[in-house]
Amino acid sequence: MYSFDYHKPTALDQALDLFKGADDPIFLAGGMTLIPTMKQRLAAPTDVIDLSGLDVLKGIALSEAGLSIGALTTHNEVATHPLIKLHLPVLAQLAATIGDNQVRNRGTIGGSIANSDPAADYPAALIGLGGTVVTQSRSIAGDDFFLDLFETALHPCELITRIEFPLPDRAAYAKFRNQASGYAVVGALVADFQGKIRVGITGAGPCACRAIGIENELMKDLSVDVLDHVEVPDAGFNSDIHASAEYRAHLVKVLTKRALTQLLSQKNAS
């Protein structure tokens, strides 16, 4: 790892000032992506700004609009928090599939979403649930947040403070897990908001996206069989040692079916 200066601000303004005053700064949350990347010398920031002292990035709250989850909430906190298990069980279940226990004890929801890894799990939830990313200066709709491989709508000095999720009547997530890392080769989150269906896909393309074609078919007929007739084109999908683009397109369909089967077996909350 190259050398850097370490800072641990205790207020948001202080964090932003430190960022603006440094040559090539980076924010540090759980470090479960950043530290391995720095160890491999793929990232070489001059200044590391540790967010863990910022209380405004913490906490979980329920409101009329849904659940608001602080950026620093760890994957294991999401997996086990009573409010999340009760009101948004799909998110708790998703978080429990991330990596391994040690990673879930450190990694954060804000870090995962800011990172936009094409195989990360939370992006499927942000898109599939139609969530919102809140930063120190604005709210960004989940649909507009992921731009490309490791690229998001965040400006350089913009911090995610919390993620807001509306509560669906029912929702389910299915994932084809990479056996070595736990990451999603493909993952699909299907949500039902009073008949309005959203499908968020991760792992297939350069960043998470909605499957609008599938959503439209499901809004006509919310059944697993309908998916047999849907074409999923593989154009633009990733091809790597784990799976070809063609296989990923196949998985989109299979995993959407699995998520939908699970969703249909749930009692409709409304």
Binding site: K8, L28, I35, P36, K39, D50, Q102, R106
Partner: peptide, 18 residues
């Protein structure tokens, strides 16, 4: 793996200053 405030973490992915 060691415990940090009672939870298991990978000490190769944590900075000592943290």
């Amino acid at each position: 793996t060691v415990h940090l405030d009672g939870r298991a973490v990978k000490s190769c992915a944590v900075l000592a200053v943290q």
